[in-house]
Nucleic acid binder design. Structure first.
Lengths: 305, 305
DNA sequence: CATCTGCCATATCTAGCAGATATGGATTTA
DNA sequence: TAAATCCATATCTGCTAGATATGGCAGATG
């Protein structure tokens, strides 16, 4: 039993006439007659009554016609869906991001654009620290992740740098350095402060960037507290336990008791935002997502140099 | 593209290994490899990644696997459903009956037995006069009908006699002849009465039977009223406009103002109940229904001779 | 490092069968 | 009654699915 039997059966059922059905199928009547017979023998049921002027379906034939049509339609739909999947227009993508990434208007913008462009691709989201995201990528639990690392030393992953975000000092509102609103601070001015930093094993990217920048400014920062999430960091600053250095997009978070200050340094002090994916054979949907993110980043950077 | 391509694809997808899938399918590895290639060429999508130790599905391949499985399952179900239809275990049957037929316990019993025995056969019901039922049978609107005729002269129909039902006189409660409860009436005793009869074009079976019996008793009945339905007949009797002769099962209808009397005659005065179907190629479900009705009638007659 | 094993791909051959062609039988139409 | 219509059966032929032979590559083993 093959699909051609179903195609032949449907044609004869719809025409009610073997010769006309054969024309429609582009073949001769006798073999079509024989194929219908073969089908009846295989099902073990008489599907048609032969009349002097055509064929009339039995009740069993009518029941089979419904199924035959549905099956042939399903085959067409299966082909189409498979092609859409291959083109990245359909499928599933699991995206992760660090806790600071969603504050940046870029990330929601990429997600919106992707959803608008590929409505048949279902998206799942996960928020975690960088280390966990990298593991999840490796384990194929996630397909892509927005992270704050410039270039983690992770084999099997491709990290696409998207953009850099200015880093600001986050100070307690009552801090003396919080008063001069218009003058950027030097890092050196913070050398005696207790720093509240994002926990390194969770977010190595930001941690390392801050340490490195302070080293370059001539001091090793006093780490007073480590916080498990970016929001905990700001909470501790608001409580007056110390200062921190955070990506500028965190200012979108109206946090009482925290004042943000720009930083002046010899080299632009920025936090990178990158998209990490596995090197090994990304699906077409993932490739589409990466391409869109990179194109959007390019546009974003052009809009605000 | 044929079903065998789907069968081959599913086997390879499930085994993740061409050689093992070929064994499972009872063929050699090279032609299976070629057929998978042919399928990929036809869909225009890479469904597998070839690895040194087996095959790994792409995202498109995974999408296609779901569809392929569903299609193959649907084919199996289509065969099974078609066979069930041919055996009369599935399908549809439209049954009609005259307005007096459902009062007989036999009819609901047949319907219940059929429903219990063939739950996959859907049933539709229609109530009408005999003439209309016969037309509907001819027009293939109905598949079977319970009628009151013994043997209508209708070409193309087969009429299966099921059982006979005693006829009773239906009298107004205040009628003088209503008083002697235990003695059967002779038909001759009703010769001066106005008869209320079921309209002949609607129900020729009962009408003719009554006229014929009266003729045999030596008189021609005075037809005072004709009624369109059996219930109308009893309503007019209750109103005192005349008497009627009705099948005994009508006594199950508790009608105020009507008294039923048995009739005494030289020949048993009965109303037949028959099942009519088309001669031409009844579906298996209809054949099943007829067989069940006849077998049930035989049982019924044995229970009450 | 060389050799072996495992596994898929390509090439060639052969048998089976789908479709073409010829013919026949039954019914309907003119 | 003859011709037309329409499905069925028989025979033939070309195509392709599957069998067989062989090759290439990667990984495992000694």
């Amino acid at each position: 039993m093959e699909l051609r039997h179903l195609r032949y059966f449907v044609a004869v059922a719809e025409e009610g006439h073997v010769t006309r059905a054969a024309e429609r199928l582009g073949m001769q009547q006798p073999p079509l007659s024989q194929q219908i017979r073969a089908l009846e023998r295989e099902v073990g049921v008489q599907l048609f009554r032969r009349k002097p002027r055509g064929m009339e379906m039995t009740a069993a034939g009518r029941a089979f016609l419904e199924d035959a049509r549905a099956i042939l339609t399903h085959v067409d739909h299966a082909f189409a869906a498979t092609r859409r999947t291959a083109r990245g227009e359909q499928g599933r993508i699991a995206v992760g991001f660090t806790s600071s990434a969603p504050f940046h208007p870029f990330v929601p913008r990429v997600i919106r654009l992707f959803r608008d462009g590929f409505p048949l691709v279902s998206m799942a989201f996960e928020e975690s620290g960088t280390t966990e995201l990298v593991d999840a990528l490796r384990n194929e639990k996630l397909d892509a992740a927005f992270i704050r690392s410039g270039a983690p030393q992770s084999s099997g992953l491709a990290v696409h740098h998207l953009l850099d975000e200015e880093m600001l000092a986050a100070l307690p509102a009552a801090h003396p350095l919080a008063r001069s609103a218009s003058k950027p601070l030097t890092l050196a001015a913070l050398s005696d402060e207790a720093f509240i930093l994002y926990r390194r094993p969770v977010g190595p990217g930001l941690y390392d960037a801050i340490i490195s920048a302070c080293r370059e400014a001539g001091f090793s920062p006093i780490v007073g507290q480590e916080a498990p999430r970016i929001l905990s960091t700001l909470n501790l600053v608001a409580a007056g336990l110390g200062i921190s250095i955070v990506p500028a997009s965190l200012t979108r978070m109206q946090m009482d008791g925290v004042v943000y200050r720009r930083l002046k340094s010899d080299r632009k002090f920025v936090a990178p935002l990158s998209l990490a994916v596995r090197w090994s054979e990304p699906s077409a949907s993932v490739r589409r997502f990466v391409d869109l993110a990179r194109a959007t980043a390019k546009t974003f950077r052009a809009e605000r140099p």
